[in-house]
């Protein structure tokens, strides 16, 4: 039995470590978030929190719900596949409260963003050298942004505002 007596200090040390481990396990059980491990090695509740972030772009479906007239004009023109907020910017606030003024896009910077001529752009994409093409005249003098082709199709569907 003397071996136990002479190794007594080692058992004390083991006791200290055991107490530390137990304390850690208790803290761990209390502190780890409850949804941790729900789907995998992460906090399951995080998914719903991320999904609940606020929207800024309302989405064209929402715009079209009210602006069906514009949607019709657009559907038959060259910009049929350009969504509303691609030009008008994020308007979820306006969709929630139509009294908020969405403002008008600035054609001077807007049109050239896509249509300024550059050899880097796909060849089949309509491009113009803005200076030569319009000589400073705003694009929407001639082109109706919601249906930009000039001709009977564009005129029939409402024309520029």
């Amino acid at each position: 039995m003397s071996i136990f007596r002479d190794a007594g200090h080692l058992f004390r040390l083991a006791g200290v470590y055991l107490a530390g481990t137990l304390l850690f396990l208790v803290v761990r059980a209390v502190v780890v978030p409850h949804s941790f491990g729900q789907y995998g090695h992460y906090r399951g509740a995080a998914i719903a929190e991320i999904a609940a972030k606020p929207l800024h772009f309302a989405g064209h479906q929402t715009c079209e719900a009210c602006h069906s007239d514009v949607a019709r004009t657009k559907a038959s023109g060259m910009h049929a596949h350009v969504n509303c907020e691609a030009c008008h910017g994020p308007l979820a606030k306006h969709a929630a409260d139509p009294s908020i003024d969405p403002g008008k896009p600035d054609v001077a910077t807007l049109c050239v963003r896509c249509h300024a001529a550059s050899a880097a752009r796909p060849k089949d994409f309509p491009q113009v050298d803005a200076d030569q093409h319009a000589d400073g005249v705003p694009c929407n003098t001639c082109h109706q942004p919601h249906s930009p082709a000039i001709g009977p199709a564009s005129a029939a569907s409402g024309g520029a505002k």
Partner: peptide, 19 residues
């Protein structure tokens, strides 16, 4: 730091040496 054990008998120190 002694953890309450003052046992420094030859045998205890021998155990310490081995461990």
């Amino acid at each position: 730091l002694t953890l309450g054990s003052a046992n420094v008998s030859e045998r205890a120190l021998h155990i310490d040496e081995r461990v």
